[in-house]
Design a protein around this nucleic acid. Structure first.
Lengths: 187, 187
DNA sequence: TAAATTATTGAACAGTTGTACAATAAAATT
DNA sequence: AATTTTATTGTACAACTGTTCAATAATTTA
């Protein structure tokens, strides 16, 4: 038994390529479904068979990017910075290099006219990655809600990324790492 | 010399009321400009004379709400919680009661299909409110970028609000305050 | 390979969007 | 109160949206 109908694969591929092509010239919000379909040579009705919004199509990519973030946490950390592992687990900090690598996409998902969905996808992933560490590094008080704590920490890191984005990613990823370490030592 | 043309005031008021009316029954993304104008009995072209998107209209409200957040920081803090003022400036923490008060609106601006703009407006305001405190409470290292630090702290607090929103605001505002204090003591 | 399944197409429809322009009405100014 | 200024209206247009349906084509299954 086969899982994927070849026609579906082809259609989605064509739509993916079309969206990427258009994104080189205009922001996500300025792209119309008709336009994508025209370029992809796919009937507009077919688009609606697979997606409901352009955002759904974009989300398919972005999920791959977020997957790369998760994967990057597996391989050993090579960018060595002097930091005390008791204060900050180095794995925590690989996210900035990931963002730097995909900055064209982060420029999209952090732009103000784009829906929050992608931000939330990212937040969930960072939470998931942090959660393991939080448990290990700190003994939790019983009275603390670990969901609140995880979202607090994850969103704080996303705050750094937002500020970085506002600076048009002009600093090095390593600089962001240093800042994070300093902020954590301070608090 | 007069500043505001009465016709403009009336038009905007009608549009405001129409949007609020519609928001009772459907989410922001499902509301069309035509619909608003039909209810407001305002020509559609007139809408475009003042706004470019529905979001602009909604933003006018939301700015008032954010203003209330800022104002609430002026009056003395009455919800007394036992906390060490050296560890956490109590003014920091008034935000949860504000959100509770306007939770219908925060439900809108934190929903996933809504653009990031409103989130950024909120983030900027929280940063502004925190910035004063951060400077006072901590001696900043020279090497730390206060913009990064401010966005880190402000976004962390918004993280708690996001988690609270995901829980459909079921906890009390005071509970959020307690959690924040505990998290800050922990870090 | 033939039959069955199902994705894609094309056409059509009512509603929305963004824009333009002349005519009109409402407000501000003198 | 008369005049000037300007916001609003109505109309029109091309493009986009979301949906439906029968006809057709591509792919899978037996």
């Amino acid at each position: 038994m086969t899982q994927l109908d070849l026609r579906i694969v082809k259609t989605k591929e064509a739509l993916h390529i079309a969206l990427l092509t258009l994104l080189k010239n205009k922001p996500l919000e300025a792209i119309s479904i008709s336009e994508i379909c025209r370029i992809a040579k796919v009937n507009r009705g077919t688009f609606y068979l697979h997606y409901t919004q352009i955002g759904d199509l974009f989300e398919e990519y972005f999920k791959e990017i977020v997957e790369d973030l998760a994967n990057s946490y597996q391989e050993p950390y090579r960018h060595v910075i002097k930091l005390n592992p008791k204060e900050l687990n180095p794995t925590t900090i690989r996210i900035f290099h990931h963002v730097e690598k995909y900055k064209e996409y982060y420029r999209i998902i952090l732009s103000k006219n784009v829906p929050l969905t992608y931000y939330y996808l990212l937040l969930e992933e960072v939470k998931r990655l942090l959660r393991g560490n939080l448990d290990k590094d700190y003994k939790l008080e019983d009275s603390i809600d670990s969901n609140f704590q995880a979202t607090y920490a994850a969103n704080a890191i996303l705050g750094l990324i937002i500020e970085w984005y506002n600076n048009d990613f002009e600093q090095e990823a390593d600089y962001l790492n240093e800042q994070l370490v300093k902020i954590l030592r301070l608090t």
